[in-house]
Simulated scan of single mutants.
Amino acid sequence: MEINAGAYYLRQLRADRHLDDRTALMEAFADPAHRRYVLNYRLRTLDEATEYVALRAAQWACDERCSWAVAEPTTGRLLGEVGLRELDLTFNTAEASVWTHPGERGQGIAATALAAALRYGFGGLGLQEISYRHEESNAASAALAARCGFTLVGPERDPSPSGEPLIRWLHKSS
């Protein structure tokens, strides 16, 4: 499922002879700011990046997670990733996630991509509620959540894997 997000388009992560996101993935996951907030994955080699691309495709296939590469429309260059994880089509809920390649931050890419993913979640999947969580110190994520129409719920009971408090936001279908 590809989505036209205006200045960008959302597509499946790729690692094939036509388009290969693996190098850009490794660059993003090597960035200290990215590593600070994305703790679940380390992509240090092409093999690890290949596994990551395959994982995202498998998660989509089993309705566990919708994940898109945020791409520059003329070249297909990877600018980031946006997704709806913890997808529950029985209760019509999901949790949003987004990151931007370090060389592309500060341009509104995350907000544009997240807004498009929210539209797909509510309109295409029929979700009723999408949450968004971030570490308390991540001011950029707080600003992004507010910009994309999420309502602040407050701190989570359990901290993030790094031990820092998590803040939860909620967005409901209208």
Results as ranks from 00 to 15, higher is better:
Arg14His: 09
Trp169Cys: 00
Tyr132Arg: 00
Glu27Lys: 02
Thr45Ala: 09
Arg11Met: 10
Leu55Asp: 02
Thr93Tyr: 04
Glu156Val: 11
Ala15Trp: 05
Thr74Ser: 15
His34Tyr: 10
Glu51Arg: 10
Gln107Asp: 06
Ala49Ser: 10
Ala7Pro: 08
Tyr120Gly: 03
Phe150Trp: 08
Glu136Pro: 01
Ala5Met: 06
Leu25Phe: 03
Glu27Tyr: 02
Ser131Gly: 14
Ser174Thr: 15
Asn4Phe: 12
Cys148Phe: 01
Glu129Ser: 12
Leu10Ile: 11
Ala117Pro: 06
Ala61Thr: 13
Arg56Glu: 09
Glu86Thr: 06
Val153Asp: 10
Ala7Gly: 14
Glu48Gln: 10
Asp158Tyr: 07
Ser162Met: 10
His18Trp: 13
Pro159Met: 12
Gly123Arg: 15
Gln12Gly: 13
Asp158Ser: 11
Leu118Phe: 12
Ala111Ser: 14
Thr93Asn: 05
Glu64Cys: 15
Asn138Val: 09
Glu136Arg: 11
Val82Leu: 13
Trp60Val: 05
Asp47Ala: 15
Ala117Cys: 13
Ser131Asp: 12
Ile109Val: 15
Asp21Tyr: 06
Gln107Asn: 12
Asp16Leu: 09
Trp99Met: 07
Gly106Phe: 06
Pro155Trp: 08
Gly121Ile: 04
Glu81Thr: 13
Ala49Ile: 07
Ala115Asp: 12
Gly108Trp: 05
Leu125Ser: 06
Glu72Lys: 01
Ser174Ile: 14
Ala145Ser: 05
Thr74Asp: 11
Gly83His: 03
Ala96Glu: 02
Arg42Ile: 09
Ile167Gln: 02
Leu13His: 10
Glu51Asp: 13
Ala146Tyr: 06
Gly103Cys: 07
Ala5Val: 06
Cys66Glu: 00
Gly126Met: 09
Phe150Ala: 05
His171Ile: 03
Ile167Ala: 00
Leu127Pro: 00
Leu118Pro: 01
Arg44Gln: 14
Leu55Ala: 05
Pro159Leu: 12
Arg11Gln: 14
His101Ile: 04
Ala58Pro: 03
Arg168Met: 04
Ser137Asp: 07
Gly126Glu: 10
Glu81Lys: 07
Ser162Thr: 15
Gly163Gln: 10
Leu10Asn: 03
Glu72His: 05
Gly154Leu: 06
Ser131Gln: 11
Cys66Phe: 05
Thr90Trp: 08
Ala143Tyr: 08
Glu135Ser: 09
Ser173Pro: 03
Leu125Met: 12
Arg22Tyr: 12
Ala15Gln: 09
Glu2Gly: 13
Leu10Arg: 02
Cys62Phe: 06
Tyr52His: 13
His171Gln: 13
Met26Pro: 02
Asp21Trp: 03
Arg22Gly: 05
Arg17Trp: 07
Arg35Asp: 12
Leu78Glu: 02
Gln107Phe: 06
Leu166Ile: 10
Leu79Trp: 00
Cys66Arg: 01
Thr112Ile: 08
Gln59Pro: 03
Cys148Thr: 05
Tyr41Arg: 14
Cys66His: 01
Leu10Tyr: 05
